[in-house]
Design a protein around this nucleic acid. Structure first.
Lengths: 337, 337
DNA sequence: CACCTTTCTGTAAACGTTTACTGCGATCGC
DNA sequence: GCGATCGCAGTAAACGTTTACAGAAAGGTG
């Protein structure tokens, strides 16, 4: 594991200057004979160019960072799976950051862009405050944010419209005759939490149903916490006939709780989730869910970043992915084959 | 987004040499007055050290790569989740590689270590051949392999003992009185596939049961493919009373198929999987599974690599994580609360 | 054959750090 | 009061590339 060969080693062996070696290796016009000598020397030595030195000179690292709260979350996972091949195809490596949804850590990731170890960053903050926005605009490398930022923020942005998404689900549940539609949300100080809370309240009214705060419960965006919240809700409002869950993990928790409580899904309680994670389709019963286009958002973010890396000066773009309702058994029952 | 300040900028503003700036920033003994001037200049300029330049000089990148087939696989995901914090705590960033289990890509990752963009690599190859072993031993940076490599290979290695794992499950099923134990495996040319195939054949014989090749079916290590394999198996051997699945994804596929076929789990067919992924505990019914310590293997691999990075010359270590049987409802039914 | 192009190669500087070495002024011991 | 010692800071080299520039060799033209 001794020190590998450098262009100097090659230059000596081939009897040429390091400039010639560099030119040959970069395919610049060189005399046939020199090319051959350099290439065979490089080959014999098993030369691999040092990317650090190259980066220092070229000011490009061919690395891109992706920062999310927790890679264990299926939504982020889907995004990583989509982002990775796009970047790879463009010659970039992927550096992963887990921030645990900690604001200080997120800010630190933005600050660390000054270290120039990546050419750009895709970030998906759960909460977006003043500090974020300032740090984003001061960032020393291009940033793409997944999740809605305030209009006018000078940053590339991929969004979805979870308000419309909530309404799609509510209308669907209502169209099935449900009137007592419970809502299980995550923390209200998060971007999706607050948006979905508003959307539920508005949506219920637009359907001509009374807003009943006994039908609303807050937990967290995880299966276990969701399940607990559903338990509380169920004991407070035993007459509910539908559940709108702010994400699919909560909805899966709801399925567990309902099953153990002996309620049939969807006959007694129809359940809808959000995010359309892979598990939604294979859960039992399969889960009706509002797709927020996680895969597409990931892909778009990667493309937006690549575009920006190719053209640093264009105006920031905002791309919105429309939500789509995926109707499955948890609201309409098993289709008869 | 202009070019950020460098130590030269700071040196000018503070009226000192770049050497002094560097010394101050690295906490080397310096006169009180100089320290103050440099620090305030750095502060005003919002200086962030360039990690590329630092890496070039120091020959360390503070990055580590993790290469696996597909981040979507829950087992690898668990490992990433475990590896990341360990590395982060030690000051390393994580670079992710998905190789799609493609041997050429894996070899390429090993070769790319010569680019020196990472200080080390954790790799989990599905198939391990001659080419791998040669590339591993020729690698220009420390490598830790998760998955059994042939004895004597000079590389740090974290293993599990899936043969013992399979036997644990078979003995458990036999102890429940099952005699027609089917086996659904993944491709035989993979390391786990071949190990588990041998283990099943041996295990069955040791239990005094006849080896019936009609009870064995090969698919792939995914839910959908597993489900198909289980369907085939079920039509070929309708009398089976237990299913040993080579991993949990296959087992989840088996649960789907059995449910749709109207077989009760575990009353009619007991099901056991391997890997003990998160989903196993929350599936319905919850899945008996052989834990191969994915989280622990990830953690150990990270620790092994860190140790090696601190001491490049020690002999390669082999660490084995023993399998543990997690008994759940898919074999013994719901425990009465 | 002298001159001008053209083609190729080598020298050297640059990217932003760290660090060995040198030199300077001050302090110490005698 | 003088040499030795010490603390500190500056100069310069190095890490491994890329690339502007200059120079040499070769070819073409009159």
């Amino acid at each position: 594991m001794s020190d590998g060969p450098t262009i100097t080693t090659i230059a000596e062996r081939a009897g040429v200057s390091i400039a010639s070696v560099s030119r040959v290796l970069n395919g610049l016009p060189t005399r046939e004979d020199t090319v051959r000598r350099v290439l065979s020397a490089a080959d014999e030595l098993g030369y691999v160019p040092n990317s650090v030195a190259r980066s220092l000179k070229s000011r490009r690292t061919n690395q891109v960072a992706f920062a999310m709260a927790d890679i264990g979350n299926p939504v982020y996972l889907t995004m990583v799976r989509e982002i990775q091949p796009v970047l790879k195809a463009a010659g970039y490596r992927l550096v992963l950051h887990s921030t645990d949804a900690d604001v200080a850590e997120e800010i630190d990731v933005l600050r660390s862009l000054g270290e120039r170890y990546v050419d750009g960053l895709i970030m998906i903050p759960l909460r977006i405050g003043e500090a974020h926005l300032k740090a984003v605009e001061a960032a020393r490398a291009p940033v793409v944010i997944i999740g809605s930022v305030p209009d006018g923020t000078r940053v590339d942005n991929v969004r979805t419209d979870s308000r419309t998404g909530v309404r799609l689900a509510l209308e669907h549940l209502r169209s099935l005759g449900r009137r007592r539609i419970g809502f299980v949300n995550g923390p209200l100080d998060t971007v999706p939490g607050s948006a979905r809370s508003t959307a539920y309240a508005e949506g219920i009214r637009e359907l001509g149903l009374p807003y009943d705060e006994n039908l609303v419960e807050i937990g967290d965006f995880y299966r276990a916490e969701g399940a607990q919240a559903v338990s509380r809700l169920l004991s407070r409002a035993p007459d509910l006939d539908a559940l709108m869950c702010a994400n699919d993990l909560i909805a899966l928790g709801a399925l567990d709780v309902l099953r153990r409580a002996g309620r049939r899904v969807p006959e007694d309680v129809a359940v809808a989730g959000m995010d359309d994670i892979d598990l939604a389709a294979v859960a039992w019963p399969s889960l009706t869910s509002v797709s927020l286009g996680s895969a597409e958002r990931g892909r778009l973010a990667a493309e937006l970043l690549l575009d920006r890396l190719g053209n640093g000066d264009r105006d920031p773009k905002v791309v919105t992915v429309p939500p789509r309702l995926m109707v499955r058994a948890s609201t309409v029952g098993e289709e008869t084959p």
